[in-house]
Amino acid sequence: MKILLIKLGGSILNELHESFFTSLKDLQAEGYKLVFVHGGGPDINEMLDALQIVPEFHNGLRRTTKDVLDVVELVLSGKTNRTLVSLLQKYGFSAIGLHGNDANLLQGDYIDQSALGEVGEITNVNSDLIMNILSLDLVPVLTPLALSENGKTLNVNADMAAGAVAKALNAESCVFVTDVKGVLENGALVERMTLDEAEQLIEDKVIYGGMIPKVKTALKTLQTGIEHVRIVSGKEHFFESGKWVGTSFVEKVRV
């Protein structure tokens, strides 16, 4: 089974173009099974603002008190997940929303409870459950929530969750969907680069600004053992006529 793990950030969700869904259809026609993991940062921040709770971050991760966790779970499960599932259904996909803290789907452990609160990293993925869902020709859409050993819900960074799920499913590729088609050098799309090349481009400031965290996340995911990690755009075709459009990261060039 060829599995494609697609990570969607909350910020791109409302900007997805029809051509993005056409690319997904083309990938299904090529035999890929699709699995989604999504974030929900903008929706979460909007709700926190409405409740007059000031967002806090530590080393790039959302500091999650119990009050913040209630908001995170409410928004991810009740709004963002439903929005993505509805969008996929609109374009003809049999999508099903799954919450990572249900049925031991995603199990996790605290990263640093004193500094981050209810924030975790994934220690185990119920891959059998996801594979069973895929066998029914359904498209699973997962929230990045995990359950600790003692039954507590943990907030998991969506990028980290995507990498962990991709690894557990032995996915052929992990795709990070953004608002740009990939890494540009002198205005031209870089279609393929190795880990070393990417790090050099960051050092040379060819990769800069908001693209740096995107690339670093891609590289981190690559090091989990996924063969191909890609950055693509949600605003246009990213797969067409059997060809990928975006930046593909590989650990090293194969001879």
Rank of each mutant, 00 (worst) to 15 (best):
T123P: 03
T65E: 03
D67Y: 07
V215S: 00
S148C: 09
G100V: 04
K2R: 15
D67V: 02
A103Y: 13
A162R: 10
K79Q: 14
A168R: 12
N81C: 12
I231G: 00
L5N: 00
V215W: 04
I96K: 06
G41T: 12
G225R: 05
H58N: 14
K205I: 08
I44R: 05
V215E: 04
K220C: 05
L98Y: 07
Q223T: 13
V141N: 04
G31L: 12
V85F: 05
E236G: 03
G108I: 11
K220V: 08
S86R: 15
H99N: 12
S241N: 15
L8K: 08
T80L: 04
D67T: 10
N124I: 04
G31I: 12
L88A: 02
L169N: 04
A218I: 09
Q113V: 14
S135Y: 11
C174Y: 12
L154E: 06
Q107L: 14
A164E: 10
L24C: 13
T143V: 05
A158W: 02
H58E: 14
L169D: 03
K235G: 03
K252R: 14
E121C: 08
L154D: 06
G120T: 11
Q223K: 15
E251A: 02
G187N: 10
K66T: 14
L87W: 09
N45T: 14
G225V: 13
S248I: 13
F238G: 04
L138D: 03
A218H: 09
V183S: 01
V206E: 00
N170H: 14
G108T: 11
F249M: 06
L74Q: 14
T153C: 03
L69N: 04
L13S: 08
N81G: 01
N14W: 07
D112N: 15
E56R: 15
V253N: 03
N155L: 03
A198M: 07
E18W: 11
K2V: 02
Q223Y: 00
I53M: 12
L88K: 07
L219W: 10
L169S: 01
E46S: 11
T178D: 01
